[in-house]
Design a protein around this nucleic acid. Structure first.
Lengths: 196, 196
DNA sequence: CCTTGTCCCGACCGATCGTTCGGTTACTCT
DNA sequence: AGAGTAACCGAACGATCGGTCGGGACAAGG
């Protein structure tokens, strides 16, 4: 077999280690020395696999962005009543956030100091606008409340969903992905107050 | 007059400059050189006013935490039906977030690399628990939905409110503090869906 | 055997980090 | 005028930053 199990690093396996450290210490707060300690190889060996610190960031945020934009191409996000497409996107966002948690976490924390970070921020804005369009259509259909501005509502809903990366941890017998997605959809659309 | 206008820096005025730069570049991404350029004085002069970089961080997050904990001492947060106290706290949180925006922004972004940051994280958790108690009481009264776990709901509501620091800008004819507070309260308690 | 390529290392680079130090203004108080 | 002090500065500190370099270990292919 030519593709036997490797016990050495690939760019991908190294990335998973790096992203964990980035999320722990922050990107700027992480040195190549920190990464080498966490990976168990020397600092210079890292450069055998990747071009440098910023490439690791670029790979990570790319993966997160691919996951998010992929949602918008799915069938249920493209056909049907706007409010139902919106609900689908919200639910899928939670699923992507949880399944790609470390990568999305990194994406949501970039500040814009480097070119890579500014590119990531731009793509995030693009995604936000796409979802805002959905909400605008649902409002035009009369399916969501009209007394809160569309842009404001979008930002608040994104705020709730994105906050997942601050506390959701997939390990052990915590709460499941499905349970979180249900809760988010209930709160976003139905609110906190008792319904009847 | 002994307290005439000063054209020199005080720890407080220097702090307001530093916090702006911290929020722009991230705390770890900000060097004392960056601060000196932004303040218009030399790097060494900063140390005439404050002990160092970390003291600036400590002063900033302290101010933010004082604002938040102050809410819990106010009368409307201490007396009345739990769901109404909760609504009051939510509204006041938005007001504190907007009025002390740069300081709270910094607080919500600390990672825990230094002792000061870990202390800030601990106090934040304490505040979260206090609000979670409020929500638990409101659930016991039957005033908020019971099909979403209290801890989960608290985290999601905090996520929505705290996301303010990512987009709210007080300048010019954007949206007012009152408008934002109304929208947050409506969405948190009533949800996105049309009510009737 | 020898070559080739992968994977890794210690040593080192110039730059920058947060901080310190000795000293110079300029204003206040007596 | 002289003393004291608040505010500031340039130069430099040891440490650490992201990244480079030459080479060693080892397995595969001839």
């Amino acid at each position: 077999m030519t593709t036997a199990k490797r016990d050495t690093y690939t760019p991908e396996t190294l990335l998973s280690v790096a992203v964990r450290v980035f999320n722990d210490r922050g990107y700027d707060g992480t040195s190549m020395e920190h990464l080498s300690k966490a990976a168990g190889i020397s600092k210079s060996s890292i450069y055998h696999h990747v071009a440098g610190k910023e490439e690791l960031l670029r790979r990570a945020v790319s993966r997160a962005l691919d996951g998010l934009f992929g949602i918008l191409d799915e069938e249920h996000a493209r056909a049907g009543r706007a409010v139902e497409r919106l609900e689908y996107v919200v639910r899928r966002m939670v699923e992507v956030l949880t399944s790609e948690l470390p990568y999305v976490t990194l994406l949501l924390r970039v500040r814009g100091n480097t070119g890579t970070e500014r590119w990531a921020l731009e793509r995030r804005r693009e995604f936000d606008h796409r979802v805002a369009e959905l909400l605008k259509d649902a409002a035009a259909d009369g399916d969501v409340r009209g007394d809160v501005e569309v842009r404001l509502a979008t930002r608040l809903v994104f705020g709730m969903i994105n906050s997942l990366v601050e506390w959701y941890r997939p390990d052990g017998r915590g709460m499941g992905e499905r349970e979180v997605a249900d809760a988010v959809v209930r709160l976003v659309f139905g609110g906190l107050r008792t319904q009847e």
